[in-house]
């Protein structure tokens, strides 16, 4: 494990007990994520991509194998507030303004009042929501709400950003726009991002590393290092390189499907 390794998973297993017997959500998962990488997890539902993200966040406990986040256990990383987590739904509190929502983790983590105000201003700018701090979530569109929830995850300046299908509920056009903004944000902040999606173009467009997973049991079938440059205009999606990677991802998904 090198200095710059952020996440290191070795032979990771996770089995859920259910009424129909145990379900193996993760089987023998090996993966390492380097600092500053943008890693996408892609696969059909039930492949364990969300479960793996939740293991990194210490929201699930693996039943076998080891995993470290920033060199320590995920639980310790959670307690030291090493990551920001963005859920599929924005999940903003309707009783707080946008600024109030972004302040929520800052209050819990004990930032001073002036520091909170400063950070809110910064992250609102980062996600292009200046001037909306005083609005309530229900006064904003779905795309703006999701941007605010990203701002909330950025506010306490964790090095890692974990995102679980954050744009899954949005329409294609809004999604393209947010993808572009997310890339710009990643470029500016140098954060390490883990990103769960089920969209091949989204995964290829965003990632430096694409982890292809398949279900029953949930496992990694392919890890693709993207040769695309860091700076990516939307038009890059029409280049032969892009199409070739997308093709490889699709092949990987199909191979995983052929197994059962």
């Amino acid at each position: 494990m090198s200095e710059t390794t952020v996440v290191e998973a070795k032979n990771l297993d996770l089995t859920f007990p259910t009424n129909d017997g145990p379900v193996q959500a993760l089987k023998d998962v090996n993966l390492s994520i380097e600092k500053g990488e943008f890693v996408s997890f892609i696969g059909p539902s039930g492949c364990g991509k969300t479960t793996f993200l939740r293991v990194m966040a210490a929201l699930e406990t693996p039943t076998g194998g080891t995993i470290t986040v920033n060199g320590v256990s995920p639980e310790e990383a959670r307690k030291s507030r090493a990551y920001g987590y963005v859920f599929q739904a924005a999940g903003l509190y309707p009783w707080r303004t946008i600024a109030g929502n972004i302040k929520l983790p800052l209050e819990i983590m004990g930032f001073s009042r002036s520091e909170r105000d400063r950070r809110v201003k910064d992250v609102l700018q980062l996600v292009d929501l200046e001037g909306f701090g005083g609005k309530y979530p229900w006064q904003l569109s779905g795309g703006m709400q999701q941007r605010a929830s990203i701002a909330r995850a950025l506010g306490f300046d964790a090095d890692i950003l974990l995102m679980d299908e954050p744009f899954g509920a949005l329409d294609e056009i809004v999604r393209d726009h947010l993808n572009e903004q997310l890339l710009a944000l990643w470029d500016r902040t140098g954060k390490t991002i883990g990103f769960v999606t089920h969209s091949i173009p989204e995964a290829v467009y965003l990632s430096t590393k694409i982890v292809v997973m398949s279900p029953r049991p949930g496992r990694i079938t392919d890890v693709i290092d993207s040769p695309l440059p860091r700076k990516r205009p939307l038009e890059i999606r029409d280049t032969p390189e892009f199409i070739e990677i997308a093709h490889r991802v699709r092949e990987g998904l199909r191979a995983g499907h052929g197994d059962d």
Partner: peptide, 29 residues
């Protein structure tokens, strides 16, 4: 509160009273 809201509080490593006052009490109003 939804499972997602409680998970979110966990990611902030919030204590019982913190999630009580900031999340569950307002949601219960």
């Amino acid at each position: 509160t939804s499972a997602m809201q409680r998970d979110q509080m966990r990611t902030y490593a919030a204590g019982y009273w913190q999630s009580f006052f900031k999340l569950r009490l307002p949601a219960a109003m």
